[in-house]
Design a protein around this nucleic acid. Structure first.
Lengths: 138, 138
DNA sequence: ACTCTAATTTAGAATCATTATAAATTAATA
DNA sequence: TATTAATTTATAATGATTCTAAATTAGAGT
């Protein structure tokens, strides 16, 4: 089976040439049922496993940065210990499980309305991000 | 005037020996009216300006990390572009002005109650952090 | 006050993630 | 197919942070 055309379209729509490296990266990122959270490091490992020819790390960085810039990925950071990316680009929030270092989506609709009582005047809100840090209760 | 005793107490209460380097750092951090947001880099610059003898960067990092670990500082990260620290350790949130890279406190009481409709079972919430990214509206 | 020891400071090296460089390769258009 | 602009690549450079090991210092005990 071949989803490549979907990825080619995705890349083209973002103004990126569909090279074989980028298509492979898209396959790892987007060819899955559930949304995917990853660090660049983990992605590099996955690519090495799933790929015959190696993809240089410069290409991985360039491609991920380009996809992020075009809005196909979302960047999330947890106190800079690790920089995660998320294939779920809808407006949503996160649990971060400190016990496992795992990141879990919280749907926007699963959080009640955020009421900012004193907005900054003369500024436009670009985004509201909530990070709920949790740990195993024991 | 001399607030040093206050800083010495603060350091001791955190189990840190009040060395002259640490006291100088405390002075820069805590001897102010308003809360203070800073990057390590900015702090190093300030210390260099306000100090006769230079403090090595290893000491700056060690001290800031120790104070953070003991809860005298709070760490905030904005997509890892920059890692900020905040002398305001009360439960609160932040505006981040993308136009100026400036970080502004939002008091906990200036945000309405956060309603997490589907909490994670078996996990304890450690913290909830809201980051409101804004930009100059023009 | 003096001695001793463990904590601390320090310069510099090491590490890690990320970005820049510049030459070789490739996609896509004519 | 030829051309050229984009892309990939290995490698070097950068920047932030941590490590190391030697020199210094704080503070407890004498």
């Amino acid at each position: 089976m071949n989803n490549n055309n979907i990825f080619i379209e995705k890349l083209r729509s973002a103004g990126l040439r569909p090279t074989k490296q980028r298509i492979k990266i898209c396959k790892v990122l987007f060819d899955r049922k559930k949304t995917f959270h990853f660090t660049i490091n983990y992605l590099k490992t996955l690519l090495q496993k799933k790929t015959d020819q190696k993809i240089s790390q410069a290409t991985v960085y360039n491609t991920i940065n380009a996809l992020t810039k075009k809005g196909h990925l979302k960047e999330i950071s947890i106190n800079c210990e690790k920089n995660y990316f998320d294939t779920n680009i809808s407006s949503h929030h996160h649990f971060f499980n400190e016990s496992t270092q795992e990141l879990i989506d919280i749907d926007d609709s699963d959080i009640g309305k955020i009421n900012i009582k004193k907005p900054l005047t003369g500024k436009k809100i670009k985004s509201i991000e909530i990070l709920v840090k949790v740990a195993n209760s024991n």
